[in-house]
Design a protein around this nucleic acid. Sequence first.
DNA 1: GCGATTAGGTTTAGCGCTATACCTCGATAG
DNA 2: CTATCGAGGTATAGCGCTAAACCTAATCGC
Lengths: 338, 338
Amino acid sequence: MRVTLREVAEQAGVSMMTVSNVMNGNRARVSPGTIEKVQRIADELGYVPSASARSLATKASRLVGLLVPAADEDSLMISPHTMAIVGLIERELRKYGYHLLLRGVAHPDEVAEALRSWSLDGAILLGFLDEEVGNLTKKTIGAVHVVAIDSYSANRLTTGTRSDDFAGARLAARHLLDLGHRRILFAGPAFSGVGVVHERFEGFGQAFADAGIPHPELVETVNTTYAEGHELGLVLRERHDLTAVFATADILAVGIVHGLTEAGVRVPQDVSVVGFDDLDLCNYVTPKLTTVAQDITRKASTAVSILLDSIEKGERPKRPVTIDVSLVERESTAPVRN
Amino acid sequence: MRVTLREVAEQAGVSMMTVSNVMNGNRARVSPGTIEKVQRIADELGYVPSASARSLATKASRLVGLLVPAADEDSLMISPHTMAIVGLIERELRKYGYHLLLRGVAHPDEVAEALRSWSLDGAILLGFLDEEVGNLTKKTIGAVHVVAIDSYSANRLTTGTRSDDFAGARLAARHLLDLGHRRILFAGPAFSGVGVVHERFEGFGQAFADAGIPHPELVETVNTTYAEGHELGLVLRERHDLTAVFATADILAVGIVHGLTEAGVRVPQDVSVVGFDDLDLCNYVTPKLTTVAQDITRKASTAVSILLDSIEKGERPKRPVTIDVSLVERESTAPVRN
DNA sequence: GCGATTAGGTTTAGCGCTATACCTCGATAG
DNA sequence: CTATCGAGGTATAGCGCTAAACCTAATCGC
């Protein structure tokens, strides 16, 4: 079956520990000649160490869990934004010799066994609702090192990374205000006291405060889907008071633009629209979407390096790291009509 | 630290094997009373079995590797189509109690150690070039069960799933022929004797044969990116002989449409365009893209069930399973101008 | 009434690796 | 010339779990 350390040791005429030391670069204890011989025999035999055995003996696995939310049956897919981050995290972990266990989480409880059982070195929680992070962190995952991406929490100081949602929304709103817009709709999913959307709402309001303009408090609650955006866009024709919309996600924004367009409202001539995320999609739609760009590459790589620092050196920042965002002006925004 | 079987056994006053049997549902050998007692104590103690230890003892891991191509540094992201499949596969595996080890593959060699070391129960290869599959399969992964998605190979009969690329392209071409088009461009990446693109090219040609129309052999070689599609679209204005384009991927098709539009060529009035994949994106662009829809949900779930049948029952189909495709008519195609 | 079964366990022996303690020289110091 | 040390190893004892063989008392067929 599998070539074991023992076999390599026998072939090389040395003890198992010597082979083990060679394989782990623990070369201080082994003479150059022996190293060379063991190395050669291991290669010839095609020896590959067993991760389970090693993990059992050392209690470390070089395995990191990545948890993403997944409504069980229905929601077939994960958002493109999430998926992109998954890819980036994989690449980053790989660079450091770690492996990625990807796991969708439908019911937080079910995750417990799964994750603890693998004695993960650490875990990354991606885009969880704020309450869930606490649960998952201690109850579920155990003592492992954890970082959260895109999670806010009121009381507990979750370590992790997130985009500067506040600044992003503020940037978007300021942009619209600069263009002369005053009646600006905030469109996004329901939010409570704390969280990504709440943060964006606050930033949105801040821009009004900055400009000394009263905040009109125009809010529409919609789920983050194209379909709901589209529906909202169609209805928005009636709202002659509005001249601009800020949507908390690009897909939503695109839906809104299309809804508006179908309803005969021109974007950006009649109504300006700004999104959030800067998906590739923004360049592919007509008009190209003005949006707030998140630096997901940095968001992912920073999360990974925080995690690995935590695992390997025990260092960890107390507070989440905030990643800068920027406004990308494209074609969906224009000065308000006269 | 960790609660072990031994501790549970001691607390419950039974042997470790009895606890082991209870935990594994091997209840034939244990009395109901004992089951209940052990179960309760295990819960109280928060016992979670160690996957490494179990894997070491049983040589099975309930772990499946998912390999996706990843050019090392540059290509930051994986295509949306690939990513969507990753998500679907994770969900499917989870349903059956398996775990997913996601791994990007830059240099096939480097994967060997990584994968063998985890003694994966099986592996899924996603979108690899044809030659690579052979290498990865035997040299790298060892004796594990392997299925390949979207891989063609000339000689070796790779087990796996793929969309009916031949039929898809034929459908697309027939659609255009039915609309009266004759000078139809085939736009896609370079291809050799065997592979997804080759298959599509053949299907494309078949539609001409079906209709008894000579195949014009109009081919443009472009990489599967929006940018290259866009560039091609711009240039295509010169080609007054063309009335339609079939692109081997939606992103490419969207790029082409935009290039054409920018160059003043109207889609679909002047030129019709058909894509392949049916990404969500198709509905978001103007005009909405007519395309060949792949059933990626089935592609993923079939791949998983083939893999699990192979792992658990030793059954496996000799040949790849082909998943049906369908044409989705949207707005980017129209009858040829008289 | 007696051997054969069976329910309900237990004991033993690893799976493949590593941490830790231990050994054995030859060189080196004083 | 002995005590000490370091280089280069080896031997032992698990990590947590399970497969396989084994045990024992109660049940069963005839």
